[in-house]
Protein backbone atom coordinates (compact mmCIF):
# COMPACT_ATOMS: atom_id res chain seq x y z
CA UNK A 1 0.00 0.00 0.00
CA UNK A 2 1.24 3.47 -0.88
CA UNK A 3 2.47 5.41 2.12
CA UNK A 4 0.77 8.71 2.89
CA UNK A 5 3.09 11.59 1.98
CA UNK A 6 3.32 14.33 4.60
CA UNK A 7 5.14 17.63 4.39
CA UNK A 8 5.80 19.57 7.61
CA UNK A 9 6.61 23.28 7.29
CA UNK A 10 7.53 24.96 10.58
CA UNK A 11 10.31 27.42 11.42
CA UNK A 12 11.30 25.53 14.60
CA UNK A 13 13.87 23.08 13.17
CA UNK A 14 14.04 20.85 16.26
CA UNK A 15 10.26 20.58 16.35
CA UNK A 16 10.22 19.67 12.65
CA UNK A 17 12.89 17.04 13.22
CA UNK A 18 11.08 15.38 16.17
CA UNK A 19 7.66 15.50 14.51
CA UNK A 20 9.07 14.13 11.23
CA UNK A 21 10.61 11.21 13.08
CA UNK A 22 7.46 10.51 15.10
CA UNK A 23 5.26 10.44 12.01
CA UNK A 24 7.83 8.31 10.16
CA UNK A 25 7.75 5.82 13.04
CA UNK A 26 3.98 5.68 12.51
CA UNK A 27 4.45 4.63 8.91
CA UNK A 28 4.13 7.94 7.08
CA UNK A 29 6.45 9.13 4.34
CA UNK A 30 7.35 12.39 6.05
CA UNK A 31 9.46 15.36 4.97
CA UNK A 32 10.18 18.38 7.12
CA UNK A 33 11.35 21.87 6.14
CA UNK A 34 11.72 25.15 8.03
CA UNK A 35 10.64 27.67 5.41
CA UNK A 36 8.33 28.01 2.44
CA UNK A 37 11.16 28.27 -0.11
CA UNK A 38 12.31 24.75 0.83
CA UNK A 39 8.70 23.61 1.10
CA UNK A 40 8.13 24.51 -2.55
CA UNK A 41 10.58 21.80 -3.67
CA UNK A 42 8.54 19.14 -1.87
CA UNK A 43 5.21 20.54 -3.00
CA UNK A 44 6.15 19.44 -6.53
CA UNK A 45 6.02 15.86 -5.23
CA UNK A 46 2.38 16.55 -4.29
CA UNK A 47 2.13 15.51 -0.65
CA UNK A 48 -1.21 14.19 0.60
CA UNK A 49 -1.15 16.35 3.68
CA UNK A 50 0.81 19.47 4.64
CA UNK A 51 1.24 20.37 8.30
CA UNK A 52 1.84 24.09 8.18
CA UNK A 53 2.96 26.54 10.84
CA UNK A 54 1.08 29.81 10.59
CA UNK A 55 4.08 32.00 11.44
CA UNK A 56 6.84 31.25 8.95
CA UNK A 57 9.89 33.51 8.65
CA UNK A 58 9.74 34.00 4.88
CA UNK A 59 5.99 34.16 4.28
CA UNK A 60 2.83 34.37 6.35
CA UNK A 61 1.31 30.92 6.85
CA UNK A 62 -2.02 32.04 5.41
CA UNK A 63 -0.25 33.16 2.21
CA UNK A 64 1.55 29.81 2.05
CA UNK A 65 -1.80 28.07 2.42
CA UNK A 66 -3.15 30.03 -0.57
CA UNK A 67 -0.07 29.13 -2.65
CA UNK A 68 -0.39 25.43 -1.81
CA UNK A 69 -4.03 25.46 -2.86
CA UNK A 70 -3.04 27.18 -6.12
CA UNK A 71 -0.46 24.45 -6.80
CA UNK A 72 -2.92 21.64 -6.13
CA UNK A 73 -6.25 22.23 -4.45
CA UNK A 74 -6.58 18.58 -3.39
CA UNK A 75 -3.59 18.81 -1.01
CA UNK A 76 -5.01 18.93 2.50
CA UNK A 77 -3.46 21.44 4.87
CA UNK A 78 -3.52 21.20 8.65
CA UNK A 79 -2.54 24.52 10.18
CA UNK A 80 -0.32 24.39 13.25
CA UNK A 81 0.29 27.37 15.46
CA UNK A 82 0.79 28.82 18.89
CA UNK A 83 -1.97 31.29 18.12
CA UNK A 84 -5.45 30.68 19.40
CA UNK A 85 -7.35 33.58 17.91
CA UNK A 86 -10.60 33.00 16.11
CA UNK A 87 -9.74 35.37 13.26
CA UNK A 88 -6.75 33.27 12.14
CA UNK A 89 -8.78 30.07 12.52
CA UNK A 90 -11.61 31.43 10.40
CA UNK A 91 -9.28 32.89 7.78
CA UNK A 92 -7.34 29.65 7.34
CA UNK A 93 -10.55 27.64 7.08
CA UNK A 94 -11.92 30.13 4.54
CA UNK A 95 -8.73 29.76 2.52
CA UNK A 96 -9.32 26.02 2.39
CA UNK A 97 -7.36 24.61 5.34
CA UNK A 98 -8.57 21.17 6.34
CA UNK A 99 -8.25 21.91 10.05
CA UNK A 100 -6.38 23.94 12.60
CA UNK A 101 -4.42 22.70 15.66
CA UNK A 102 -2.94 24.74 18.48
CA UNK A 103 0.57 23.88 19.65
CA UNK A 104 1.48 21.82 21.56
CA UNK A 105 -0.56 19.17 19.74
CA UNK A 106 -1.35 15.65 20.80
CA UNK A 107 0.32 13.25 18.34
CA UNK A 108 -2.65 10.87 18.27
CA UNK A 109 -5.00 13.78 17.55
CA UNK A 110 -2.68 14.86 14.73
CA UNK A 111 -2.57 11.33 13.31
CA UNK A 112 -6.35 11.16 13.43
CA UNK A 113 -6.59 14.48 11.54
CA UNK A 114 -4.03 13.27 8.98
CA UNK A 115 -6.07 10.12 8.32
CA UNK A 116 -9.28 12.09 7.81
CA UNK A 117 -7.46 14.65 5.66
CA UNK A 118 -6.05 11.85 3.50
CA UNK A 119 -9.57 10.47 2.95
CA UNK A 120 -10.73 13.94 1.95
CA UNK A 121 -7.88 14.21 -0.57
CA UNK A 122 -8.81 10.84 -2.07
CA UNK A 123 -12.43 11.98 -2.33
CA UNK A 124 -11.34 15.22 -4.03
CA UNK A 125 -9.29 13.30 -6.59
CA UNK A 126 -12.10 10.89 -7.58
Amino acid sequence: MKKTKILIIDDESELVSALTERLTLRGYNTFGVTNFADGLKFLNKIPDVVILDIGLPDMDGLEVLKKIKEINSSIQVIMLSGYGDDEKVNKSLNYGAFDYLIKPVDIEELVSKIETAKLKKEEAEK
Binding site: E12, R22, G82, P104
Partner: peptide, 22 residues
Protein backbone atom coordinates in the same frame (compact mmCIF):
# COMPACT_ATOMS: atom_id res chain seq x y z
CA UNK B 1 4.61 35.46 25.77
CA UNK B 2 2.01 32.68 25.85
CA UNK B 3 2.46 32.09 22.13
CA UNK B 4 6.21 31.73 22.57
CA UNK B 5 5.84 29.44 25.59
CA UNK B 6 3.39 27.28 23.63
CA UNK B 7 6.09 26.87 20.99
CA UNK B 8 8.66 25.94 23.64
CA UNK B 9 6.27 23.38 25.13
CA UNK B 10 5.48 21.99 21.69
CA UNK B 11 9.15 21.23 21.13
CA UNK B 12 9.54 19.66 24.58
CA UNK B 13 6.40 17.60 24.00
CA UNK B 14 7.50 16.32 20.58
CA UNK B 15 11.04 15.57 21.76
CA UNK B 16 9.88 13.64 24.84
CA UNK B 17 7.19 11.99 22.70
CA UNK B 18 9.86 10.78 20.29
CA UNK B 19 11.84 9.21 23.15
CA UNK B 20 8.64 7.58 24.34
CA UNK B 21 7.88 6.27 20.82
CA UNK B 22 11.37 4.78 20.55
Amino acid sequence: FTHEINNHLALIKESSGLISDI
